[in-house]
Design a protein around this nucleic acid. Structure first.
Lengths: 360, 360
DNA sequence: TTTTAGCACTCAAGGTTGTTGAGTGCTAAC
DNA sequence: GTTAGCACTCAACAACCTTGAGTGCTAAAA
């Protein structure tokens, strides 16, 4: 609400920071007396109370009810994240686990993201998501085919961003290597680099004419291509560590948890949330409580960072947890993992020796 | 634990059936008085009490505490499933939704299973899982390669059961079409149809020697192949509708739910559970409570059915819910979906015209 | 002017107690 | 074999009290 919080003097900042960190740790409203234990704050409880009252009127703290302790408000967390928080220092153990991911040398973004989610969930004890957005180019630049069986072949589609999709297609007629390579050629000639709305019926008919026999295959293939191009909200979302959330009392209310889980399963909304976010922002992004547009997430925080490869956003990795979250640790973890993945992707295309020369 | 329950007379069966159905519907222990409302049972509450007492001593019913109503025991449910239950009749609406799946014409088992899980979860209001077991042959019968980029190619592996796996492999050296097809040839010659323990170092060295330049690629490829062959518990598990479970009071205890969720996320145990089950059993299989070996599932029921294609088990689809479950509906749904998928898979290999000749 | 001690006040949490009502088992009559 | 009647049990609920952490305010100390 209010500006950057520069109106706060050092003492208020110290107290606010202490309150937030205590609350994150204990999970309960923190009172003035509790803070007097903090060696950094050499004040009586009464003085602290006065400061807390002011912090509350400034909107950084809230009181669940008269004469309970104080709890950080959304703006409190926001101010903390923006100005007060110190970077979390990874432990040796944590760094080791991260490096194991880097050494795995997974080239495929999907499998890489899957490993990354598990890692993120394991390290932070929150739920982690990995997102692969719909490829944005909207065209397929190259087709490849692989004959798998007399009646089955695989269509490999590569788009401008290097995204690769495979689909298997069956045919009731027998397919020969020769037919298939003619089909491949035809596709690369006529369909490659076309947007879905440029694939007209007459174009398809032309291919079918050129192709002669087996129009059945052509129409199956075209249908598959169009489906792939136009996949409604494309993208893919993987999750890990959903069960971690149940450790936090915030989610002990089954109804609320169910709603959040519903959103996570639905995938669509989360994908939108992430892809709507600031495209140019390179670092970790933090959506606290109602900063998430989704009603169901108003009591949760989402921290995520986009993963870029060759200048394009190819994915994102994030953490979802209660508003009361160990921001310092989570943000560092997400940032570190995302950066590493970006690095791996970029280097695996051109200079894979950047990683440990030995596996295992 | 006693035998098939043939010692029960008709009246006991009627009462047991009524109790189970009432309990499934209401979710609460059912008392003798409640049952007198049932027109089929024209008895006084006292008589019903006597019968209930006998059913309890036979092990089919349980009393949560003195003078609450009765609740079906595990054997009670088991007897119900084996002998009392009538088949659920699908509504028009439900049949329509099933048919939509059949019309989607998804050839790939993965995508088909994913759609099927969502459907099953939606129809039953429980959590649904789809399982693709580790391919059992343990060998790859055919390799294919597709060049995707100067430094990137795709390795397609087909195993005996028609299972197809793709992996992308990068190389720091440039790859030509020609090198790649030589690699493919070499793989099909030397590695195809070999078990993972038959791929010896000397064999690999031989390939590298034959292959001349670019040994880097060979070793990456072999590593990938071995990984694929030896994937610890292979298999894949998809879930849908996890949030449905939270609607049932059985899962309002967060701790217990967390454990179940943990098992579901772990995947490994569930895969084992299903693959350990009776291989020859073609119909739906029902594991009630502690019939599941997993401790975490002792309060849940799992209903699943294997999906066969060409005589082999290629997957399974199942439902997980509380022990108090609408068995009739769930079993029918699982059975129907599994049968349909089997049908689709078998027909799409040979006679795809079995399905509606028109899409949409 | 700032800080602190003291005090009255508030209110959630948790314990105790009593009431209610659904349900049972047993017995005696039908 | 079935039923009505009755005494008994026990979870669920509500009413009540106690406790204690925490507050705001005021007046005195620094």
């Amino acid at each position: 609400m209010q500006g950057g919080g520069s109106e706060l003097n050092e003492r208020k900042k110290l107290i606010l920071k202490a309150i937030i960190e205590a609350h994150v740790k204990e999970g309960e409203p923190v009172g003035s007396k509790y803070l007097t234990q903090n060696k950094q704050i050499a004040l009586s409880s009464a003085t602290i109370r006065n400061e807390m009252a002011e912090l509350e009127s400034l909107g950084y703290l809230e009181q669940p009810y008269t004469s309970a302790g104080r709890v950080p408000s959304e703006s409190g967390y926001r101010f903390y994240v923006n100005s007060l928080m110190q970077k979390y220092r990874m432990s040796q153990n944590e760094l080791a686990r991260m490096n194991a991911l880097a050494k795995s040398r997974l080239a495929e973004i999907d499998r890489l993201l899957e490993s990354a989610t598990r890692l993120a969930a394991g390290l932070t004890n929150y739920t982690s998501i990995a997102i692969k957005p719909k490829q944005s180019t909207g065209v397929i630049t190259k087709f490849k085919t692989v004959l798998l069986d007399k009646h089955l072949f695989m269509l490999v589609m590569i788009d401008g961003t290097g995204n690769i999709k495979t689909r298997q297609i069956t045919s009731d007629e027998e397919i020969s290597e020769e037919t298939l390579s003619r089909l491949e050629e035809e596709l690369n000639l006529k369909i490659a680099n076309k947007r879905v709305d440029e694939i007209t019926v007459s174009l398809v008919m032309e291919i079918e004419r050129n192709f002669g026999a087996g129009e059945g295959i052509v129409s199956s293939v075209i249908k598959t291509v169009c489906e792939t191009l136009g996949e409604p909200e494309g993208g893919d979302l993987k999750m890990a560590g959903v069960n971690h959330l149940l450790e936090y009392p915030e989610f002990s209310d089954a109804r609320e948890f169910k709603e959040l889980l519903g959103v996570l399963e639905e995938k669509r909304d989360i994908l939108k949330l992430v892809s709507d976010s600031d495209l140019d922002e390179d670092g970790p992004q933090v959506l606290i409580g109602s900063e998430n547009v989704l009603e169901e997430m108003k009591n949760s925080t989402m921290v995520f960072q986009k993963i870029k490869s060759g200048g394009k956003v190819v994915g994102a990795i994030g953490i979802i947890g209660p508003r009361r979250m160990d921001y310092s640790k989570v943000i560092s973890t997400v940032e570190y993992i995302a950066q590493n993945i970006s690095l791996m992707l970029n280097s695996s295309l051109s200079l894979p020796e950047a990683f440990g020369e030995d596996e295992n």
